[in-house]
Design a protein around this nucleic acid. Sequence first.
DNA 1: CGTTGAGTTGACTGATCTCAAATACGGTGG
DNA 2: CCACCGTATTTGAGATCAGTCAACTCAACG
Lengths: 256, 256
Amino acid sequence: MKKTEGGKVVKLESVKAACQDCSLRELCLPLGLNANDLSALDSLIKRTRKLKKGEFVYQIGQPLTSLYAIRAGSAKTCEIAATGEVQITGFHLAGELLGVDGISADRHHCDAVALESTEVCEIPFDKLEQLAHDVPGLQHQLFKIFSREIVHDSEHLLMLGKMNAEERLAVCLLSFSHRFQELGYSSSDFKLSMSRQDLGDYLGLALETVSRLFSRFQDEGLLAVDGRRIQILDSVRLAAVAGTGAINIPTHKFSN
Amino acid sequence: MKKTEGGKVVKLESVKAACQDCSLRELCLPLGLNANDLSALDSLIKRTRKLKKGEFVYQIGQPLTSLYAIRAGSAKTCEIAATGEVQITGFHLAGELLGVDGISADRHHCDAVALESTEVCEIPFDKLEQLAHDVPGLQHQLFKIFSREIVHDSEHLLMLGKMNAEERLAVCLLSFSHRFQELGYSSSDFKLSMSRQDLGDYLGLALETVSRLFSRFQDEGLLAVDGRRIQILDSVRLAAVAGTGAINIPTHKFSN
DNA sequence: CGTTGAGTTGACTGATCTCAAATACGGTGG
DNA sequence: CCACCGTATTTGAGATCAGTCAACTCAACG
């Protein structure tokens, strides 16, 4: 995760601060974009929006104009049923792209809401498409990002369709653990930015059930829970509760 | 849905039979591709594979080489939990594209299985990407198709996370009704190609629950059920059971 | 220092699952 | 064309996981 001073693939020093450690790095850097391409991408960005907790990145029905890369903070995307019930389809951390739902119908299909003070880069979609055409590899990278979202959704479907409450929460916590680690934070000690209600709406559980599960996991010595601060005390057993398969523990994974 | 002899937007007569009424038409025709582009697309297609019921279009772990457009028949895509439990992430009819899950990691993330005698066109992905670069609008069209899959998944998530068993089955049946209609078949009288078990694995329910729901819907006069043949007798009430919002009734949809 | 929202915990309820058995169906071989 | 077999489906009865309703605690905030 550490960058030594002399960048190897890309001369990071030469581009604006915006992209070099921003949310888009997952989108850009794996490409091996050269400095020119990177700064082209950089110049796409319309503006950086700062959002307070609870503010919308976009809302259902708004015309799609841009995608949004989370630069800092976190967000949830919410589907709303006719009855008013909410299903959270994803929690999104720094480095992730929001808004792909809107491409299909040229307007957003879900709400995206900041879970805390959050900063997003607004990337006009038409310009991004143009750039994807002009820059070799960017089209492929976008396909991959979209595909990754589909894969994530199908894992979420498996969770909601086949797992019991314990497994769901365990999988969810391990996923956070893994993603925080990838962002350079502790994988075993973190503060969640969402409420029990949000977790329930993501996991397909009542908030009381989520709360009870936290208590149970704490009693069993898997976690230390203090409100939204979570410490994973026994990741091996937590993974066992998760039913193995779903998410790999960040130690090592069998190759094949 | 009917094609009169003289095509209007595209001179269909001038291209090979392969694409003109094939599964890819959703992918191609909305573009207003000209005849040259269409035949370029046509020439991409590696081969048409005929599959018997139960055969794999692709399997988890196989390297991604192609996407597959369903030309006739139907398929399911299945996620497998570590415990061996199956979650079906989608049922796919003619005109739909399979395999997008595999782009993310260059290998397939789920199984795709024919539900009946099925024919798919194999489209080498690298060539498709090249064509997407060369043909104006195809890139955008692919983005849209991928986005549509994400939207569908999030509706599925809402179903599994927030709906009760009745609502789930009703939504599912209305979705089939709508899709059959779009393919030119009856929207109120059709034969399902999947088992009760498959429906349960899609809906996050036990097969017995699905069976009981069919019986109940029949008792209530919503459906006539004869094994896998389903007649929708009261689509208005069925939509009411579905909780409205989820899927539009196939009469007419508001334009924009 | 009262108000408000978030979280925890308990008691009870019920929708759905599981287990089990009966029945119908579809395909196959004689 | 029919009998037979295995699979799919239906139906019943009982068990259970998670939801609902409700009360209480706690922390943040004006």
